[in-house]
C-alpha cells in the first residue's frame, strides 16, 4: 500500500471497499483502478506519506437520506405523471415512461454518489495540521495548519444526530478556503478534535 501513498492515499482503500461491499460495480471498479494505476505512476515524487482516516460509515447513510429527500421533489411528480398516464391509456400495465428514468437518476444520486464521495474522502490530523482530501473527478487536498485556525465549529443536523455524527468546520483568515469542513465524524470525535486544535492554539500563543 505504501507505493500508493501520496496525493491519493484513499485509492487503495477505495478499491478494497468496492471488492468487499460493491461487487456489483465491477466494471467501474476496473475503470477506477485503471485510471488510478496511471495516476499513481505520476506520483513518484509525492511526499505526503501518512495514512488517511475514513469518515464514519454511517456518514453514507446520512448523505443518502439527505439525497433521497431532495429526490422526492422529482419522484413525487413522476409518480403523479405515471399514474395519470396509466389512467389515460386504454390497456396494458403502466409503461414507466416517467418513473423509470427518474428512478435511475435517483439511484445515481442516492446510491452511487454518496458512496463514491465517501470512499474518496479522508482526513488526517497530525500534531500541528489537519489535512482533508476529497473528490474523485475534481480532487482537492487541503491542509490547514492549527496555527492559522481562527475559530472552530461543531455542527449537528437532525439526521446526523440520529447517527450521533457531526461536522467539524475550521475557519481561517484566508479569502480562499476561509471555511474548511469535515462532515461524518462521530460527535465525540469531533469534540475531541476541536479540543485538541484549541489546545494547540493556546499552546502556540504562550
Amino acid at each position: 500500500m505504501t507505493d500508493c501513498a501520496g496525493f491519493t492515499p484513499t485509492a487503495p482503500l477505495a478499491i478494497e471497499e468496492m471488492d468487499v461491499n460493491y461487487k456489483g460495480f465491477g466494471a467501474i471498479n476496473c475503470l477506477v483502478s485503471a485510471i488510478q494505476q496511471r495516476h499513481i505512476s505520476n506520483m513518484d515524487e509525492a511526499t505526503e506519506t501518512e495514512e488517511l482516516t475514513r469518515l464514519h460509515p454511517d456518514h453514507v447513510k446520512v448523505t443518502r437520506i439527505v439525497a433521497s429527500l431532495f429526490m422526492l421533489v422529482l419522484i413525487i411528480p413522476a409518480i403523479i405523471a405515471e399514474t395519470a398516464a396509466y389512467l389515460n391509456q386504454e390497456s396494458g400495465p403502466p409503461n414507466g415512461v416517467f418513473i423509470i428514468p427518474v428512478l435511475l437518476i435517483a439511484a445515481f444520486f442516492v446510491l452511487f454518489m454518496p458512496w463514491r464521495r465517501y470512499i474518496h474522502r479522508g482526513f488526517h490530523m497530525s500534531a500541528d495540521r489537519i489535512r482533508i482530501v476529497r473528490g474523485y473527478l475534481f480532487r482537492s487536498d487541503t491542509i490547514v495548519p492549527f496555527g492559522r485556525i481562527q475559530h472552530i465549529d461543531v455542527d449537528q443536523g437532525p439526521i446526523q444526530r440520529r447517527y450521533d455524527l457531526a461536522t467539524l468546520t475550521v475557519h481561517t483568515a484566508g479569502n480562499h478556503n476561509s471555511t474548511v469542513s469535515l462532515p461524518g465524524l462521530l460527535h465525540e470525535d469531533a469534540i475531541a478534535m476541536r479540543e485538541e486544535i484549541r489546545a494547540h492554539i493556546k499552546r502556540d500563543a504562550i
Partner: peptide, 22 residues
C-alpha cells in the same frame, strides 16, 4: 493560511495540479 492542491480529470491524466493559497 491554508494550502490546497486540486486537480480536475484532465489535469490528473497530465499529472498536473493547481495550488491554491489562502
Amino acid at each position: 493560511q491554508s494550502i490546497e492542491i486540486s486537480q480536475g480529470p484532465i489535469a490528473r491524466l497530465r499529472g498536473l495540479a493547481e495550488m491554491e493559497f489562502g
